[in-house]
Simulated scan of single mutants.
Amino acid sequence: MAERPTEARHPSAEGLHAVPAAEVFSRLLNAQADAVDALRPALPALEKAAEAAARALAGGGRMAYAGAGSSGLMALADCLELAGTFGIPPDRTPMLFAGGASALLHMTGAVEDDPALAETDLARAALGPGDVVICLSASGGTPYTLAVARGAKARGAQVIGIANVAGSALLDMADFPLLLDTGPEVVAGSTRMAAATAQKVALNLMSVLVGIRLGHVHDGYMVNVVADNAKLRDRAARIVAAISGQDIAVARDALEQSEGAVKPAILIARGTAPEHARAALDASGGHLAPALAATTN
């Protein structure tokens, strides 16, 4: 087990079963904080990976996710949030999860060892040139994830590999390798802890930069949000009001005219006719700042 750092003995594990709850929590929390700090040396590689993913989406390609077990869950969590947060259609961000939907209700280890499942999922996703797939594996050697990475590369897609073990097979084959060197787990081998925390934070950083590059974030606001419930409709109105400098009533009226789309509503609230607002956004590639500049009287 000691061959992989994630399986090795953590210094804080000694006597963990016998210490008070507060001490257990303190040791675990310190390990989680260390896991987040492990991202700092990886930031340059993370930037390259995010830029590649943004280029794929901007060019009409897709940004897929792939993983098994805890790593797959981290990938799935990020993938599912993209539509609501950044308005990216789900068909542009396919998810390849070992075992499929049934594995989400009852996770079993066997599916991660089955490359044939990866081939089936790859065929269904039809990845190819212009696409990017983000493959996650704490060990960097999960057979399902490696099979996805190999198959995607063979089909012409680029691979972003995220792993927590240096020199692992996934990092070796990835076009954009990203090592999150989180080391041993306090509960040896339980990579749903430090390794998964680092993966989740890395994906958060990556997807936000992708959103920024696509023009879906402006001054920290999610200006491409899909307002499909009461909470998000209220958020959209507040975003329009804040960026346009108008009151909430004007913002709501602008959203009515834009059929709920935040970016054109901001321009409309500032006095731009709806057809001119959409034309300005088309001319700016969907980026709000140049559209605002072009429509300012």
Results as ranks from 00 to 15, higher is better:
125 A>Q: 02
226 V>A: 12
235 R>Q: 11
127 L>I: 09
222 M>H: 07
201 V>A: 13
280 A>C: 11
8 A>V: 07
41 P>R: 00
284 S>H: 01
185 E>F: 04
155 R>I: 06
99 G>S: 12
250 V>D: 08
201 V>E: 06
239 I>V: 15
5 P>A: 14
96 L>C: 09
190 S>D: 04
241 A>V: 03
68 A>M: 06
243 I>A: 09
265 A>Q: 09
42 A>G: 07
236 A>W: 06
153 K>M: 14
52 A>L: 13
176 F>L: 10
234 D>N: 11
171 L>A: 08
50 A>F: 11
213 R>L: 15
152 A>V: 12
181 D>K: 09
10 H>F: 10
149 A>G: 08
117 L>F: 02
58 A>D: 14
260 G>W: 03
252 R>Y: 05
158 Q>S: 15
235 R>Y: 06
181 D>P: 02
250 V>R: 13
89 P>C: 14
35 A>I: 11
170 L>G: 07
137 S>H: 03
193 M>D: 00
10 H>G: 13
87 G>Q: 07
210 V>Y: 01
229 N>I: 12
108 T>Q: 14
50 A>K: 07
187 V>P: 00
148 V>K: 05
39 L>T: 07
278 R>K: 14
57 L>W: 03
124 R>W: 03
17 H>M: 11
14 E>C: 00
2 A>Y: 03
251 A>T: 09
120 T>W: 00
186 V>F: 01
87 G>V: 04
185 E>I: 06
246 Q>C: 15
162 I>L: 15
177 P>L: 10
57 L>I: 12
254 A>Q: 04
246 Q>P: 00
93 T>C: 15
5 P>S: 14
12 S>N: 05
292 L>P: 08
8 A>P: 03
27 R>G: 08
289 A>N: 02
285 G>K: 04
83 A>F: 14
171 L>W: 04
154 A>I: 07
52 A>H: 07
147 A>Q: 05
110 A>R: 12
102 S>P: 01
113 D>T: 10
67 G>C: 10
10 H>L: 11
232 L>V: 02
281 L>Y: 01
161 G>E: 08
115 P>H: 03
174 A>L: 08
132 V>I: 15
9 R>I: 13
296 T>Y: 00
210 V>E: 08
259 E>S: 15
242 A>E: 07
68 A>P: 07
275 E>F: 09
238 R>A: 14
26 S>D: 11
168 S>D: 07
215 G>A: 11
112 E>H: 05
213 R>A: 15
96 L>R: 02
232 L>I: 10
71 S>W: 02
51 E>A: 14
294 A>V: 06
213 R>S: 11
75 A>V: 05
74 M>R: 10
172 D>C: 03
104 L>D: 05
207 S>Q: 02
2 A>C: 04
42 A>S: 14
10 H>K: 13
262 V>F: 11
240 V>E: 04
271 G>A: 09
139 S>C: 13
227 A>G: 09
134 I>D: 05
192 R>V: 10
87 G>F: 08
4 R>P: 01
